[in-house]
Design a protein around this nucleic acid. Sequence first.
DNA 1: CTAGTATTCAATGAATTACTTGAGTATATG
DNA 2: CATATACTCAAGTAATTCATTGAATACTAG
Lengths: 234, 234
Amino acid sequence: MRNREFRDAIYEQFARISKALASPKRLELLDLLCQGERSVEVLAKSTGLSVANASQHLHTLRAARLIEAEKRGLFVVYHLADRQVCDLLSAIRLLAEARLADIEQITRQFMKSHPNLEPVDRETLRERVLSGAVTLLDVRPKEEYLAGHIPGALCVPLEELEERLDGLPRDQEIVAYCRGPYCVLAVEAVERLKARGFEAHRMEDGIVEWRSLGLPVEEAVSAAESQHRNRGDA
Amino acid sequence: MRNREFRDAIYEQFARISKALASPKRLELLDLLCQGERSVEVLAKSTGLSVANASQHLHTLRAARLIEAEKRGLFVVYHLADRQVCDLLSAIRLLAEARLADIEQITRQFMKSHPNLEPVDRETLRERVLSGAVTLLDVRPKEEYLAGHIPGALCVPLEELEERLDGLPRDQEIVAYCRGPYCVLAVEAVERLKARGFEAHRMEDGIVEWRSLGLPVEEAVSAAESQHRNRGDA
DNA sequence: CTAGTATTCAATGAATTACTTGAGTATATG
DNA sequence: CATATACTCAAGTAATTCATTGAATACTAG
């Protein structure tokens, strides 16, 4: 039956996409690439992979045409081939959160082992920010802050946190946020702040959730935006 | 590093979803289940799998909580666990179509080997339907027709086509549609109609595309719907 | 042209996954 | 109660995928 051959061929192609996604490490790599372009070395480091292994995973992602590589001098910089890839990742994340009870349990356990990280929810935060009773920190890399952040938030990338401690209020509550519930930048930031005697909390949701709820997002405009587009990682 | 363990655990969970999707046959099974519930036997037959093999694929889909099973007498009827699964599938399909050139080539080649199947696009169809110059056939199973069809379309499931030939006009153009570009029901229908001397064409898009374009869809109401829910395959 | 760095490639063995076969379970029918 | 039907399970083999290792390539700086 010719129909069967056709269908087999077509679904084989669809499966190229899903097979590329069928690995935790590759999902993590894609998640990172959703935030912006990265070199192999950086990707390997952030995911805990060996460079050779990361390179191979990137190769399979590339074979599925989910990402593209660009050689820049000594580095190979990878970026998503299509914005739709982010959508696909969120769809997976959403489904996983909705259907897999294990995820909730894992996060709960993680929070338990980090007992100082009492998360702050959106509603509470909005109130406190509006009343000026709180200092809000965006601890993601600067480019991501420029691409969109919660109004009133300060741009304090995690790497710069130590240098900027002097500028932060010791008499006021500090709330840190990052990309979302599975991003640990804010967790790290809050731990460091607490260790220094600040009163810090973490907002559970990140910019993605904030945005998708239709809440206001401030964007840095043209100049910064195009700079981000052209140079990527600074 | 505790963060790493957490991330590994979380991405491991996300990967449960994508691993379940990482097989052409499982994608096909899910596609079928997007149309409505089905028994193992029916699924096996439509996908060309052995029953035991289909059962195992269904088992892995179930382990990823993408589908659910319900025993009804002698049959086990499977259905999607969540509407979001359809969204995920379309996301994959969309990305695949956008990025994988092979898909276009495969469809083109299929159309070449079925040269009589000149497809009809939406715009042309709308004009012709409005002017009454065309008879529109929905050749999907009856339940799917009931769940939503293009206004003015007749319900003529492919299996019943032969018996209903007498009711179709020989002096007028006939256009058949089904689920979408990768569904071959309409292709088959057009071939049979042409063999009988009808002037038949196939609409390239299916109900899914029609719907997602915001075009009007007629739905059969309560009675028929609940009948569909309770009995499934007739 | 040499040395050094970033990345990829190729080869290996370990681990997973796919499909088949045949047996086993549950439900309906005579 | 025996039999047929629809499905699942277990075991085995073939095929694929994985991470690791060490070598090869590509580019830069001196």
